[in-house]
């Protein structure tokens, strides 16, 4: 008797849960398929001969699969060099952005002083300008500093953006001030509070900043194009663009390269997204 009652009662709930889950997965998988469509085209084009890339109607599965594209690309362009340069630039720029950004954000979020908010708005407003607006004056300045053609010029341009400061500041605001006050009473300096209290608490934000900066640097084309001249300094995006000639373009190889260039980002992403799973996790959020 008792056992039946116990068994019977959870059943509808259990069934509903299973149905809910199933529906959720069906929905997610459908959405995923739709979202991945252009990526699928990219992979498919990367496995075709160039003249087969644009056909009407679209040929999603190549008739004549060219696996060798993925081998040939390494000899057609100096992929290894490009890859090394891109990894170097992305890593250095991301580290600097995360470090200086999170440090400055503490000043903007947790230390109160005159002129702070004005300075902050100024920071944000400059993000609004498209690079084309001040590209030429900036380039002239870099020429005068003798930095064009070096990695350093690109690092300087991209490492000190306002984006990281903004992102980290907003996250720090969610950390209660009482925590800092308590730490101050315990005799920690402001730098100590940043390093020992705030940083460990802001791993999700650090992860997202690092991820987004890395991706943006990795995929940047115009910056490296303007500032890096020597072929030995080129990045992957420049390498991919080199498949576009004056009168003809090898879109198949370009897509092959694009697929390859996505893989490292994917690895970084899967590594970084683990940090988005603390706090609430299972509870709440079913709405």
């Amino acid at each position: 008797m008792t056992t039946t009652a116990l068994e019977r009662r959870p059943t509808p709930r259990h069934v509903r849960r299973v149905i809910g889950r199933t529906l959720l997965y069906v929905l997610l998988i459908l959405a995923a398929a739709a979202i991945l469509l252009p990526f699928a085209w990219m992979v498919s084009a990367g496995l075709k001969r160039n003249n087969d890339v644009f056909t009407i109607p679209v040929q999603w599965i190549p008739h004549n699969v060219q696996w060798r594209n993925f081998v040939d690309i390494w000899s057609q362009i100096p992929m290894t060099t490009y890859l090394r340069n891109t990894v170097f630039l992305s890593t250095v720029i991301t580290s600097l952005q995360v470090l200086t950004g999170s440090f400055a954000a503490y000043g903007f979020a947790k230390v109160r002083f005159r002129g702070r908010d004005t300075l902050f708005v100024l920071y944000i407003a400059t993000i609004a300008l498209p690079w084309q607006a001040y590209m030429v004056p900036q380039y002239i300045m870099m020429v005068k500093a003798g930095l064009t053609g070096t990695f350093l010029s690109l690092i300087l341009i991209q490492a000190f953006g306002a984006f990281g400061v903004f992102l980290m500041r907003q996250y720090y605001l969610t950390i209660p001030d009482e925590l800092c006050e308590a730490a101050r009473l315990d005799g920690l300096s402001e730098y100590g509070i940043w390093a020992r209290i705030i940083l460990p608490l802001s791993k999700p934000a650090l992860a997202s900043l690092a991820l987004l900066t890395f991706v943006n640097t990795w995929n940047d084309y115009m910056g490296p194009f303007i500032y890096l001249t020597d072929n030995d300094h080129w990045t992957i995006q420049l390498g991919l663009q080199s498949f576009i000639g004056e009168f003809n373009a090898d879109y198949a190889m370009m897509m092959t390269g694009s697929v390859l260039s996505v893989i490292p980002i994917l690895v970084i992403f899967l590594f970084g997204q683990r940090y988005f799973i603390r706090g609430i996790a299972t509870s709440g959020m079913k709405g």
């Binding site: 992102l167 907003q170 996250y171 969610t174 950390i175 999700p204 934000a205 992860a207 997202s208 991820l211 987004l212 997204q273 940090y275 988005f276 799973i277 603390r278 706090g279 609430i280 996790a281 509870s283 709440g284 959020m285």
Partner: peptide
């Protein structure tokens, strides 16, 4: 990504 990071800051 930004929202995911933000959601982690809300106390359980």
């Amino acid at each position: 990504i930004l929202f995911l990071a933000g959601l982690q800051a809300i106390p359980k």
